[in-house]
């Protein structure tokens, strides 16, 4: 059962993780927080951005800060599924007999960096499906369990780029978040250049082990969610489905496929972590509204009408939030604030 010490432990660890990562990452605060939330919530993260904006650096820095076994796969068009999962090889035993021995692939780790995942063929991309969801790998009829915690941090280039293969829906759905890594501001860019003049290597120090990460995940799961917030999240997910009788005209026109139930799970699970990170012990509407973008943007497929009219998936989510009665939160006003205003 969670107690106040656990909360203090969670708070301390979160601050240290964010502190270590910020040594290597300039700006991209939302992306960093998103990655940390997903890691604690036990979800996989898909980072999308043009080359050179720090996706891989962020993941590597995260790997260092977590002090977990870390693998990196550079996805290329000729990468085969066995290169990811591992394969059976013939080995001679002590008696000189040949035997098939399973040689684990890079997926057998705690933190897997799948770099430029959409440069591999869909077949190879799909090799990660089982690992991402069930945390197991099956080869030649033999199932192997991955060690916990396990999560995939994948990066991809925008699909408009040459030599990319869009991820299948089944796989994108297995990512808890899809985070967009934008181009840094001029000031951030200057700071990045300054930082990398000294060294290109990540400097983050390990602050948390696998067991501690699992403990933090358990703490976050205890956070209470009131019914209204839960229902609001579920209504938001339902609103993405144009085939439902309750779908709005907007959804029918601009959405081809809606989000799966995993989106609902993701909103609540991630909402709990976000609440704890904010020093709260309950999930708020604001958590749901904020997390709706990374949770839904890769699960909602815009229709042809949306594409032709230049309506992005973010626009669709914004509209759905407004339709679902997204509750804007005023910044908290304290007694001091009020007195100042009166004066």
């Amino acid at each position: 059962m969670v107690n106040e010490n656990d909360i203090l432990f969670f708070s301390e660890k979160i601050n240290r993780i964010l502190g270590e990562i910020s040594r290597d990452m300039i700006g991209q605060r939302d992306v960093v927080e998103g990655v940390v939330i997903a890691v604690i919530a036990g979800g996989n993260v898909l980072l999308e951005g043009v080359p050179g904006v720090g996706k891989t650096r962020l993941v590597r820095s995260m790997g260092q800060a977590l002090a977990l076994p870390f693998s990196r796969i550079q996805f290329t068009p000729d990468l085969m599924p066995a290169d990811v999962t591992g394969t059976n090889v013939i080995e001679k035993d002590e008696n000189g007999q040949n035997r098939l021995v399973f040689r684990p692939g890079p997926v057998f780790t705690n933190l897997l960096l799948a770099d430029e995942i959409n440069r591999a063929t869909p077949k190879t991309q799909s090799a990660l499906l089982e690992a991402m969801q069930e945390h197991t790998v099956t080869a030649d009829g033999q199932t192997y369990r991955l060690s916990e915690p396990f999560f995939v941090l994948a990066t991809q280039n925008p699909i408009e780029q040459d030599g990319t293969y869009p991820l299948p829906e089944a796989q994108t759905d297995r990512f808890l978040f899809k985070l967009i890594v934008g181009f840094p501001t001029t000031e951030e860019l200057a700071a990045i250049v300054q930082m990398t003049q000294a060294t290109m290597a990540e400097t983050a120090q390990p602050v948390i082990g696998g067991d501690e990460l699992l403990a933090m995940r358990a703490i976050a799961k205890e956070i209470p969610v009131m019914d209204d917030v839960l229902m609001y999240a579920m209504q938001l997910v339902s609103a993405t489905h144009p085939e439902l009788p309750s779908a709005s005209e907007y959804a029918k026109k601009y959405i081809r496929f809606g989000a799966s139930p995993r989106a609902g799970q993701a909103l609540i699970t991630a909402g709990k972590v976000r609440a704890l990170m904010a020093g709260r012990f309950n999930v708020s509407f604001d958590d749901i509204n904020t997390l709706a973008y990374p949770v839904l943007r890769h699960r909602v497929k815009p229709s042809f009408a949306a594409v032709t009219e230049g309506i992005s998936v973010e626009d669709i989510i914004t509209h759905l939030l407004e339709e679902a009665g997204g509750r804007k939160q005023n910044p908290i006003q304290t007694v001091t604030d009020l007195l100042k205003k009166k004066k």
């Binding site: 969670v2 205890e222 009131m226 209204d228 917030v229 904010a278 309950n282 509407f285």
Partner: peptide, 18 residues
């Protein structure tokens, strides 16, 4: 107050520590 009060009301009889 970010749903603090609503949650408190809903969980006012909950005996857990959290």
């Amino acid at each position: 107050l970010q749903e603090r009060i609503g949650t408190m009301l809903e969980y006012r009889a909950d005996p857990t520590e959290i």
